[in-house]
């Protein structure tokens, strides 16, 4: 079975993309970042949802969207998802899996866990492309990544 979850900071506002790039972008671009988790598991879906809600989310500062594969934010021009390569050590993943392995009767077992940072870019003109972001943010030595444009 499969579940997706996207964790968003409640108090974050859109930042200036110039802070992310080495050269100023064309136009006034803004960004927001979320964490995206893709879990494949066996066992109880309810237990898996509960685990996500209790372990991956801080309910003071986060809100979470569980179960939907649609992006949690709207109005974006594209989103860039990037995360550690399967062969590279991902501390967050290791910590989650280790914590889960120490639980008594968690109700489900992980088959796989993929964690990515989802960078939403907002461009009022809708023309911005991801090339500069991929070049300046993603490191092909340790990351895998994908870009999804908003449906027009």
């Amino acid at each position: 079975m499969r579940l997706e979850a996207e964790v968003i900071g409640k108090f974050e506002t859109a930042g200036d993309c110039a802070k992310l790039l080495y050269a100023p972008p064309q136009g006034k671009l803004r960004y927001r970042r979320t964490r995206h988790y893709e879990i494949e598991f066996e066992g109880s879906e309810e237990s898996a949802r509960e685990f996500i809600d209790l372990v991956l989310v801080d309910h003071v500062s986060h809100e979470v969207h569980i179960g939907s594969s649609s992006p949690a934010l709207s109005g974006f021009t594209f989103h860039l998802d990037y995360g550690m390569k399967p062969t590279a050590l991902d501390h967050e993943k290791e910590t989650i899996l280790r914590y889960h392995s120490e639980l008594e009767n968690p109700g489900f077992t992980f088959s796989s866990l993929k964690i990515t940072t989802r960078l939403y870019v907002f461009d009022d003109d809708g023309k911005a492309t991801a090339d500069a972001f991929v070049q300046d943010i993603v490191n092909p030595a340790v990351h895998v990544w994908s870009v999804q444009r908003a449906a027009s």
Partner: peptide, 13 residues
């Protein structure tokens, strides 16, 4: 080097 030598990059804890 970026692609070929990725294994040579250690990850710290």
């Amino acid at each position: 080097s970026h692609e070929e030598d990725q294994q040579a990059v250690q990850i710290g804890n």
